[in-house]
Nucleic acid binder design. Structure first.
Lengths: 160, 160
DNA sequence: CTTCCTGCAAAAGTTTTGCATTAAC
DNA sequence: GTTAATGCAAAACTTTTGCAGGAAG
């Protein structure tokens, strides 16, 4: 992947993001604490799914105090439950996390087998319409689809 | 998911499978040992992606001696490298493993958020043709696609 | 103020590794 | 016979948890 745009253009920017997240947390009785704000900031800035060690690393200079590891694990888990963060599986060792699609817009992933990096990409509406057809088809089999994942796995430009 | 067909109909059956796997391993200088055979048998019989604990559990009565945990981990890793096994991410805690698509045929997954089970499903050729279009599109961005994943996530009939 | 969240440190899991023995070929 | 694979047990990691002190609302 050539260095792409810093972040999604379908997503909420800067302060709006925090307002939205804050509201969403309040609704479920959670506080928007400093460390949760750091996690959200780090993920928004990265614009791609990060592993927990990456979040910790990126969160260090983001504020005076470093992010405690246990808090990061706890925060990420709670933010996933609150539909602020989404877990993305990378195929390698670590799970990765990104902002929830309700905040960034629906997208898919290019997963590099070489370096493990994941980049976002969007597909034509026409393709999503085909996916909707499939969702209807499996509903007939008794399976209720809540979400779908479509990832392309291969080699990015750097690892080719 | 209603109890579906026991296994893939596009895949190699019984002895053919072992012959093919044995040949594939020999080519890369690996032996087709008892425990590797058990792992392949377990995955072929399950017909759906299994976690490592599930493989160990299923492999126990499969032969006189139980599968050692360290061997199972090593075997699965080596079989992945040899393109006999494929890793599938389930979204929950454990990674899952299934036979490589070159042995079972190309397919996609229905992932149940409730029980974590993954079932296979196949999509129309027409859909795969659309995927091929997308592969071509990202190739223009410098990303070489080797494989794709398309999973539907939701609730199976039992967990609805 | 009250309740939730943090940070530490310990516990619980999971996966990997070293090495003598066993089994493939 | 050679050489790779196994099995055990220990080590290395990752993730979770309990709890006293601190911060959010």
């Amino acid at each position: 992947m050539p260095p792409q745009e810093p972040t999604h253009d379908h997503g909420l920017a800067g302060e709006d993001l925090h307002v939205t997240v804050g509201r969403r947390l309040r609704v479920v009785g959670m506080r928007y604490s400093r460390s949760r704000r750091v996690v959200v900031d780090v993920l928004a800035t990265a614009g791609r799914p990060l592993t927990l060690p990456e979040i910790l690393e990126a969160g260090r200079p983001a504020d005076d105090r470093p992010l405690a590891q246990s808090s990061a694990y706890r925060n990420v888990g709670e933010l996933v439950d609150a539909a602020v963060v989404r877990r993305v599986d990378s195929g390698d060792d670590h799970a990765r996390f990104e902002l929830h699609e309700s905040l960034t817009g629906h997208h898919h992933h290019l997963v590099c087998d070489g370096c493990g990096r994941i980049e976002d990409f969007e597909v034509p509406d026409e393709f999503e319409a085909r996916v909707a057809d499939l969702v209807a088809a499996v509903a007939d089999r008794g399976f209720r689809v809540d979400a779908h994942r479509f990832d392309m796995v291969g080699r990015c430009a750097d690892c080719a």
